[in-house]
Nucleic acid binder design. Structure first.
Lengths: 176, 176, 176, 176
DNA sequence: AATGAATGAGAGTTCATTCAT
DNA sequence: GATGAATGAACTCTCATTCAT
């Protein structure tokens, strides 16, 4: 519900109704509405960071690593669509909220990891040296992760077709 | 304020305080909080669509058109940053809200316009034929417009450097 | 906890936490929160009335009786400080609560007992006849029992020094 | 209502009902329930301190000053009975509450003022030198101010008869 | 004797909106 | 064009209490 309607548009009563209990009863399980958000986000971010780290640590060459990160991103959009949407929608709002520092921290970790891969590729001569690594990371990140706003499982695309199309565009560019 | 804090996180009192009047007095100028949003968004979308249409109508060849649309997008992010951020943040929420159908309509118009340009490029043999036009449009759109979430005027980048870097990546791809 | 934080400011959970069990488990030992209060207060009031009665029944002359009642009051403040504080804080609130009629009854018993001593002293010519007995009782009672709000065992005073100072003031007055 | 039922036992809805408006409307006049308490208490304490200070500054001799302070206290109990009761009931609870430091401060000011008068009387030889001034102050204060818990205007006593009886007891003591 | 999940009522507070002045 | 008082609904959260286990 947080992903669909937004955190602050979702009421505790909405959640309790969906759970089939009274709103007060939720407080037996969570200390606050924010605590529910924390549990959702930290679980998601922990898993994502672990998978990203594993890809890079087991990596062979920068291009395979970057392709792996991108493919894993599309898979995550498929497997944890609502968590991704939640993160996309609320991350900027949470940046300033006390108790949610871990969100910005995890984002910074991710950014550093991706940029290292891009720089390694440039150093190895496999990625164009004239591209700004930080900028390139952001263009890729946004192009990939924004997919969550329109992707629907069971629709025209699968994580694999998305990754294939995106990588084709990214690798060789749009020009014939 | 809608762009910065979000529409529903911004109270009518916040706006009135910033305007130096009392909240009730705002209703002399706007029929509702939503009417303020409508005015902001429709002005922004009208201007944007007009500029996009002009680019394509005055267009020479598909590549120049696409580059023009992208460059104009970065300029708009610079010139109307808050309106763009507002649109990015609230568009999906507004899709279902009565009275805001015009937002989705304008978005569809834009999408059709961009996709026509891409398809024209493929037909002319200048864009890769194996790319899905709709998918390519979304990857580009998201990569470009998400810039608004981190771009700050006066920072390391200008609309021109952003466009130059993005077009370099888009034209030739990341591979050396 | 009732004495320190007040009855209605103390939650059943507070009490259960302090007891190292869960709040629901308290209801195995007490039928309600009020039942805990009853147990505390009735035990305290029973003991106090018994000691007061004993003093007066074993009494020799009115002055010794009054001094004895006052000294016993200071001792009770020392020995059962929290119970006294609880009684002082909650008595007026409880006056109207169903099931707590015993509190007002015990207070009335006490009042009658003290006033009898004062009137006996006036009849015997040992206490000033021009003093209103009921009023004098209340002035004494409040001066003595309010001590509980600031008295701390182990501090500058003992029940004995308090009684000595108070009796000096009461016996001869403030004027030199 | 705060005086009668206690601050935390009084609900915002109780107050609004008594005022003939809805509970939310109260927040147009007060920022919070605590703000109502602040307004009541600070007004009361400011006035009381001003009157006490005036009595001592205009004073001739210590006995007249002390009598004046006591008489003024009984008058205040008569004139501002509910404010006095509120202060008596809530002062100790408020001692620890953020934003209510002014209550403890005013109390300390009062205490210092009364004790100075008592010490001046002892120095002048008009008050018994063997009495502990701080202790004597507290016995008097509690005897006098606790009156509020049972005094009812229009009843058997007036502020003047109360003061007369109390001063008779205080001046010469209970012994004949 | 204790757990832990749930209840249901009610708490303080927020806020878009209305409207007589 | 603005005020300021009020509305009414909804919000998050608290808490004494119940009860099957």
């Amino acid at each position: 519900m947080f992903a669909t309607k937004g955190f602050s548009q979702t009421t505790v009563r909405d959640i309790a109704d969906a759970a089939g209990i009274l709103s007060g009863s939720l407080y037996h399980h969570f200390r606050s509405k924010e605590a529910m958000l924390t549990e959702l986000l930290s679980g998601f971010l922990d898993g994502l960071n672990a998978r990203f780290t594993e890809i890079v640590e087991a990596g062979v060459d920068p291009q395979a690593d970057l392709d792996g990160l991108i493919t894993e991103s599309f898979r995550t959009i498929h497997n944890e669509r609502l968590a991704v949407a939640l993160y996309q929608n609320e991350a900027s709002f949470l940046a300033t909220v006390e108790g949610f520092e871990f969100v910005a921290e995890r984002s910074r970790d991710n950014e550093a990891l991706w940029i290292r891969v891009i720089e390694a590729g440039q150093a190895a001569g496999v990625f164009q040296a004239s591209l700004d690594p930080a900028l390139t990371y952001r263009f890729i990140r946004d192009g990939v992760w924004s997919t969550v706003s329109w992707y629907r499982p069971g629709g025209r695309h699968t994580p694999e077709t998305l990754a294939e199309q995106y990588l084709k565009l990214l690798h060789a560019g749009i020009l014939a």
